[in-house]
Amino acid sequence: MPHQCTNCGRAFDDGSKEMLSGCPDCGGNKFQFRPDGIDSQAPPDPDAEPPEPPEPPGADSTVARTVGKTAATVRDIVGGGNDDPTVGADAGAASSTGASGSDDASPGVDRSEAATRREVDTQTADTEDAAQASARADVVTPDELPQEPQTDSESEHHFQPVGADPDPPEEPDETERPDLKELREELNDQFESIKVLEPGQYELNLMELYDREEYIVALQEDGRYSIQVPETFRE
């Protein structure tokens, strides 16, 4: 809805991860932002498609499917969707599968709206490209349903790195952490030897100084000190 592929016109929900790896349909990587207010007016196309992708994954469970369909139909109503074939089929499926009382309400809405939609569709279908219509039809076809989960899974592959944005930084951190730990330990060791409270005030850990192989040659005013390694010290 808020995002639309500028190449094929496919729409994506706000925050959709699919578009992060390019449009699953055409591979396009340019998307235009469409605020909700505009969405309701302009893009019936995008509206039609996004509801459908949720459906395939939900096809496994009847409840999920019906919920997905109701969501799709509601969007269609709001956006004046053109998905007659798809919604019609979905509505049929929903009505057939919807055994619960709660499901009965939504098909009722579907059917009543379906009629109005068909009228709108016939009007808009004239103005629309056949390619767009076929694209929508393609999306709805059962053949595409298995593909979309694939794209989902692909997108997931893309996403996990992206969606796990916190993670990738962590991984490098983890790889760096040992070094940092070593550094800190090294620094701690040094502070354990000589702690500079302020220039001219020092606390000394005699055991640490004794245990060190390095020989502290000179203290700097900034708290650093230079050391002489045993090899050079011992000629």
């Binding site: 005030q201 000394l204 004794y210 000179a218």
Partner: peptide
């Protein structure tokens, strides 16, 4: 005094090193 303090601290480190 600060310089003497710094040198004294270096001296302790040196003394401990000699002891080792």
């Amino acid at each position: 005094a600060v310089r003497r303090s710094r040198e004294a601290t270096e001296g302790v480190a040196e003394a401990m090193h000699w002891l080792r």
